[in-house]
Write a protein that binds this DNA or RNA. Structure first.
Length: 327
RNA sequence: CUCCCUGUGGUCUAGCGGCUACGAUGCCUCCCUGUAGAGGAGGAGACGCACGUUCGAGUCGUGCCGGGGAGACCA
């Protein structure tokens, strides 16, 4: 797989292809980032962007993980003490999951976001951005919550972070694209360069197959799930025997294979009783999806296999969590 | 600071002084399918808080709290 392909595989949107191609041409030492609001437990949504970070490291890039403590504070997630504690747990889980420690820089937002230069640039952004624009960009504002001033400052800081962390590339889920577009429009006005972005897909809800609602509610796989939890959650997942269900629905089981399993494993072994045809082995997601579509692979067997591989992915993080919680 | 509107299960919602508070959706359980969904059968879950009026208040009044809107101030 060439570098451009490695950088852009499994992403929904590349902004822009040309700019990312320039990075792919010479990835060594280039810096990419994802910002996360600290969370004590990583869930499958965090892991999707983490997979992309692993790809980027494999390509030779450096990765910056922003532990966005100030953002979390602005979003009402607690005191700084509480936020920092969950941030440390998050860091441990990312490393356990497979981020290369030697190529990963973890940065707290509060390390630089309170400094004068940053704050003055932030005020300049506030001056040049309309309220409605900032509010639309605020992906974190879910449901019918009423916007606070903090909520509109939030995305402006995200835009500014991309400059202050000295990045070459911004990574985030599709839910972050409005923030990134705001960044691309506004940074030049402050005399900074707009950076390219990669947007990962948002995986459909596991039980309904309804798409695109990030991590808000519903069943999700997380680092604190036991093997039995994962089996149970995967087993109850929506999974029609097709890659393209009716309407706007997606097949979450296939999505998890595509975005989480195949990128991390050389091949996938489906253990199956002789009665149903015996074991199957896949080295490509496409082959597995095609077999599910044709009926060669039954959804029940796909689910059992998915649970096994997800469990293997989660296991190190789960162990790390257990260790943290014992202290 | 003042005034107006608003507050029922997770979400949306009926109720308009009177039996164990309607319904939808979501959620949980079971049946049915070699998965899930769909379908069928069950189940848990609510009147923001406090006084007061009344024989009796989700339903009326007052206050507080929360949400929305407007006005005043022009420093």
């Amino acid at each position: 797989m060439d570098t451009q392909e490695l950088l852009t595989r499994n992403v929904d949107e590349v902004v822009t292809e040309e700019e990312v191609a320039a990075i792919a041409a010479d990835p060594a030492g280039k810096r990419a980032y994802v910002g996360y609001e600290p969370s004590g437990v990583l869930h499958i949504g965090h892991l999707l962007t983490a997979n992309k970070l692993i790809d980027l490291q494999e390509a030779g890039m450096e990765v910056v993980v922003l532990l966005a403590d100030v953002h979390a504070y602005l979003n009402g997630k607690g005191t700084f003490e509480e936020i920092r504690e969950t941030a440390e747990q998050m860091r441990a889980q990312f490393l356990a999951y497979g981020l290369d420690e030697s190529k990963t820089e973890f940065v707290y937002g509060s390390e630089y976001q309170l400094e004068e230069d940053y704050v003055l640039d932030l005020h300049e952004l506030e001056l040049s951005t309309t309220l409605s624009r900032a509010q639309r960009a605020m992906a974190e504002l879910q449901g019918g919550e009423t916007a606070k001033v903090s909520h509109v400052v939030y995305p402006l800081m995200q835009a500014l972070d991309i400059e202050y962390l000295d990045l070459d590339l911004a990574v985030g889920g599709m839910d972050q694209r409005k923030v990134h577009m705001l960044m691309r429009e506004e940074l030049p006005g402050l005399g900074y360069e707009a950076r390219p972005c990669l947007h990962t897909p948002i995986v459909a809800d596991l039980t309904t197959g309804e798409g695109k609602m990030s991590s808000s509610e519903g069943v999700t796989i997380s680092m604190e799930d036991s093997t039995a939890d994962i089996e149970s959650k995967v087993n109850s997942a929506f999974c029609p025997p097709t890659r393209d269900p009716e309407g706007d629905l997606e097949n979450p089981v296939l999505e998890l294979f595509e975005y989480h399993v195949f990128p991390r494993f050389e091949s996938v072994l489906v253990e199956r009783p002789e009665k149903y045809g015996g074991d199957l082995e896949y080295s490509e997601y496409e082959d597995l999806a095609a077999d599910l579509e044709s009926g060669e692979l039954h959804p029940a067997d796909a689910k059992g296999t998915l649970a096994t591989y997800l469990d293997e992915l989660i296991a190190p993080g789960r162990a790390a969590l257990r260790e943290i919680r014992q202290d």
